[in-house]
């Protein structure tokens, strides 16, 4: 599916199960540098699990994930930034302190605080990001005093200060109002273009997936056992490049993303 050139992020034969119940099975994926990959699928079909694998928060029982040809670390690292739906910023730090934190962590191993010239340098970068995410008026507020959209803008800004090569988004706009969500789409698209990151975004909003992605992955179960719905895991069932978005949309059968009922209506694959 991927275009020409060497793959940047690659998943090979991933298999994950919890307590003996397979969640993901035989997942293969190969993504080019700079892609914006949106991941959709019914609830509970392993999209978020897959994102946690890419993050290094979990490790697959079988298979491996490679970035730039190298196996990823088994724990999160600054190479891969993340924004979750909630709790992605630190509640005890103001907007300004949240934006200073990445530099303080990077520049001061023992105290994680910067002074003098190093601090001024960090403040410049934080100031620039503060303007970019449009939170200048709220610099001294705590996250609990921000709206959901502002919190997510802060979370994205904080993550991007670390200049990750890969940005992972786990339903980042799922809790936002439609208007705010559209603003966030503009922001994330601009940041993605200007930073040249590779983005993986899990969403349950199919329109969002088509609007933002250059490529869409659909996770679903290929095999169903009506008597034991936990029996089989999900895998990537559709992998569509979205260069011609209309064509890709037409390729998906209608109702693919409706929540599964598994109540005997499914035909055995």
């Amino acid at each position: 599916m991927s275009g020409a050139g060497k793959a940047f992020v690659e998943a090979r034969g991933i298999h994950v199960s919890y307590d003996g119940n397979p969640i993901l099975e035989r997942v293969h994926m190969s993504v080019d540098r700079g892609a914006f990959v949106t991941i959709v699928g019914a609830s509970g079909c392993g999209k978020s699990t897959f994102l946690r694998l890419l993050l290094g928060q979990e490790t697959p029982q079988k298979g491996e994930i490679l970035v730039d040809g190298k196996k990823i670390a088994a724990e999160p690292d600054p190479d891969r930034g993340v924004v979750f739906q909630k709790y992605s910023v630190f509640p005890h730090l103001t907007v300004w302190q949240n934006l200073l934190l990445p530099a303080e962590i990077g520049g001061s191993p023992f105290l994680a605080r910067l002074f003098g010239a190093a601090r001024r340098h960090a403040e410049e970068a934080a100031e620039e990001m503060l303007v970019e995410i449009g939170l200048s008026h709220a610099r001294n507020r705590y996250p609990a005093q921000l709206s959901g959209g502002m919190q997510q803008r802060l979370a994205i800004g904080q993550t991007l200060l670390k200049k990750p090569r890969i940005l992972l988004l786990d339903e980042p706009f799922g809790a936002l109002d439609p208007g705010i969500r559209a603003d966030m789409h503009v922001l994330i698209t601009e940041l993605w273009r200007s930073c040249g990151m590779t983005v993986f975004m899990v969403t349950h909003d199919i329109q969002e997936a088509f609007k933002l992605g250059t490529r869409i992955l659909v996770f679903d179960k290929v095999r169903h056992d009506p008597h034991a719905p936990e029996r089989f895991g999900a895998t990537i069932t559709y992998d569509l490049p979205l260069d011609h978005k209309a064509k890709a949309a037409a390729a998906l059968p209608p109702g693919i993303l409706k929540t599964h009922s598994h109540q005997g209506v499914d035909v055995h694959a």
């Binding site: 993050l55 690292d77 891969r80 993340v82 990445p102 962590i105 993550t159």
Partner: peptide, 12 residues
């Protein structure tokens, strides 16, 4: 999420 986020910022 906070713990993971801090790790992705490179924190020990």
């Amino acid at each position: 999420e906070e713990m993971v986020k801090a790790q992705t910022l490179g924190a020990s």
